[in-house]
Amino acid sequence: MAVRKNQADLTATEKRNFVDAVLELKRSGRYDEFISTHNAFIIGDTDNGERTGHRSPSFLPWHRRFLLQFEEALQSITPSVTLPYWDWTVDRSPRSSLWAEDFLGGDGRSGDGRVPSGPFAFGNGKWPMNIRVDGRTFLRRSLGTGVRELPTRAEVDRVLAMTVYDAAPWNSSSDGFRNNVEGWRGPNLHNRVHVWVGGQMTTGASPNDPVFWLHHCFIDKLWAEWQRLHPKSGYLPTGNTPDVVDLHDTMKPWNDVTPADLLDHTKFYRYA
């Protein structure tokens, strides 16, 4: 059984294996397929139209499947690699080991936001921005600039305490756990972290920054924590909801997997 660990607990070898597998996916072109898929959904998902990957109940199972697909791709390079998660309620500083040279590299430099060192720095030549929204071809970050503070554990706990998974109208204006964890309502968890990182992470092409996967892995873990806290609360809605993925509807782009198939993450991996 695959075990997903807190990034802060990874050994040097585990970090190196993760980074090398990510770079190999990039070199082979497979990495960029994930970026364009994400970008397509983030553009296509609208509050009053069809919505699957974002601003909808399937935000959580869609990203769970998306991460599984990415993790499988990493494992096709190095079978021992699993996705780490970034608990930004604890590792909330630009000085966290997450941003060290041996892992994701650090903050962008002032002026143009370019990440100057680490495995994903432009100068290494291994991390071109091929799927992008503007002309800049280098990885950028601006940690803590777009918003000063990452969410706190108290804010996370407030959201985890919500008993209802999601609610009509099943979009960015909904009450419930999903929209509060996504961040369109309430203390703003997931969205705020994208803004805190800055650079490509604020755009529709956010998987250009490898921290995307560690951020979403923690969001995925919060969903698992919420399920443990509320064993009687299930995924909603459960049927006949226009434009929205119901419990037993298949999800694009895979078309062979439903939210129901993804509710139990222990079929696929455990969290350490």
């Binding site: 898929t37 970008n39 959904f41 069809e50 699957t52 993925v245 509807d249 782009p253």
Partner: peptide
């Protein structure tokens, strides 16, 4: 879910044609 839309085509192409660069 209902009604095939143009976006379904888009989403489908995202999966199959992914990897095309912007230009």
């Amino acid at each position: 879910m209902s009604r095939p839309t143009r976006r379904q085509v888009l989403h489908g192409s995202a999966a199959t044609l992914a990897g095309a660069v912007l230009a």
